[in-house]
Amino acid sequence: MIGVIGAGVLGARVVEELVANGQAHVYVHDSNPVAARRVVDRSSQAAHKVSAVDVHELFGTNVVVLACAPAHAKAARRLLEAGVSVVSCSDDVDDVLELLDLDAVARQKKQTLVVGASASPGLSGLLVHMMSSRFDTIDEAHVAVHGTAGPACAQQHHRALSRQSIGWHDGDWLRRPAGSGRELCWFPDPVGPRDCYRAEMADPVVLHHGFADLTRVTGRVSATRRDRLTARLPMLTPPHPEGGIGALRVEVRGWRNDSRHIEVVGAADRMANLAGTVAAATARGVAIGGFASGVRVLGDSDSPNDAIFDAVCKAGIQLREFVGTSSP
């Protein structure tokens, strides 16, 4: 049995994906019971039962997906100590660092904690893993994201532009002001080219955990001039219930046949759709015992990356690779 905490845009997509893939019974909990009820009403079918439950009932499940706003570390620790595996969709750097520190707890309880199982991080790690087979060795990964999912994601995007970006650079963590380092990134259609900036993203932390050999890892988000100008202020307008089409772009650099080689792969879809699909596929993987115990990130050598990747593609996520430029 799988539980989901959070009945927002992301939580609803996770539940939909689980039900669509034959999960017979799903528990949903949200601090707003009306939101949980809405997800239950929308997703329940004759063959699949979705129930809105109290948080204590989630301790009786096998896996819980944390699809609520961060922080997840405290909830993850309690669930692990109760013998429940956890899939976290957190994209907050401090929260992700705390989650990665729960390895000892997860191993002691012989449970799995998957950190950053959404679009960014999550799908980004899967793409780095898949692309690495086209190289002899990889040493750089650069992630760029456009768009947000629900209101909590939009607030996280706003916060990310007001703090300090973190990146892995030649064996050291490099901190730079968020909103700096403009780079024109090409996303798959219909998003196209967007100006992207450094931001406090969890991708470098998660990718460094999964791919220790990488020497450079960066993360950027698309932003308008207005986003950067108002980043240090409270959000002036309430965030959208759900953002429009977003996109993820992962650029991997390395060596192939003794020459420098670059591959770029991306996906354009609603961010909640990307994140929910990855989270649901990961939760199913954990539920059937596909992951070893301890803290895992998508893309690392001990995770069933190919199976999750196949499940994501089967769910309708269209991945695109950038072609046409032959030299780096």
């Binding site: 798959p188 069933p304 046409g324």
Partner: peptide, 27 residues
């Protein structure tokens, strides 16, 4: 920005010789 070169095509993954190609009971 316009470009005359480059574009996106469907990504076809190259399967590596990863030992974790399928769900395996690792617990």
């Amino acid at each position: 920005v316009t470009t005359k070169q480059g574009g996106w095509r469907t990504y076809t993954p190259t399967r590596g010789s990863s030992p974790t190609n399928n769900y395996t009971s690792a617990k």
